[in-house]
Structure formats: C-alpha cells, structure tokens
C-alpha cells in the first residue's frame, strides 16, 4: 500500500467516526433540513468535476466533464438553496405574525 493511499484511508475512516460522533440524537423537526443539508455537503463532488474537466482531452471526456459539472452544480446549488429556505422558516419571531414576510413567501411559492 502506498503512503498516499494509506493516508487517504486513514482520513476516510476518521471522517466516518467524526460523522457518527457529530450526529447524535437530533429532534424530528430538524431531520428533513438535516438530510437536505447533508445532501448539499456531498455536492463537494463539484471539485471532482473541475479535476475531470482539467484532464479531459477528447470529445467523450468533454461530454463526461460537462455531465459531471452539471450534476454536481445542481446538487450543490440546489441543496444549499432549499436547505436555507427551510431553515429560514425557523428564524421568525416566536408566535409573532409577520404579514409582510408572509406575502413574500406566498409570492415565492407560486
């Protein structure tokens, strides 16, 4: 096993453990936003799209690079947008009505 593969493997295993540790019991209220947030994080695959594009040197590879960039960009941009929108709803003042905001939200949803 090469040094490089070993260090990558170590990083992988330790990151798995961090994931288990950081994700203790979370309230049901936040499970959907959390899933969406985690979904956005694996959009980091977009970095891979750059690497693919940089190494592409024929038409087949350019098409793959395009596909990869498109898929990853949808994942990362959409993921953060929709997670932020969901979480934004928890920011409102407790119990208070916010008619102006309400209208805006309606507009956005139509």
């Amino acid at each position: 096993m090469s040094q490089q593969l070993y260090s990558n493997l170590a990083i992988f295993v330790l990151s798995l453990l961090v994931g288990f540790e950081v994700m203790s019991k979370i309230p049901a209220t936040l499970q959907t936003p959390m899933m969406s947030g985690a979904n956005a994080i694996h959009g980091v695959v977009v970095v891979g799209a750059f690497v693919v594009a940089a190494e592409a040197n024929n038409w087949g590879f350019y098409i793959l690079a395009f596909l990869c960039a498109f898929f990853a960009a949808v994942n990362v941009a959409g993921g953060y947008t929709v997670t932020d929108r969901m979480l934004g709803m928890f920011d409102r003042p407790k119990g208070g009505k916010a008619p102006a905001k309400d209208n805006k939200q309606d507009g956005g949803e139509q």
């Binding site: 990151s15 798995l16 453990l17 994931g19 994700m23 899933m35 994080i41």
Partner: peptide, 12 residues
Amino acid sequence: AGALVGSAGTIL
C-alpha cells in the same frame, strides 16, 4: 465530506 455525509446520513 463524503465520509462525513456517509456516516452522519447513516445515523439520520
């Protein structure tokens, strides 16, 4: 990031 989502997602 992938491993983090992998394990955190499993717990979720």
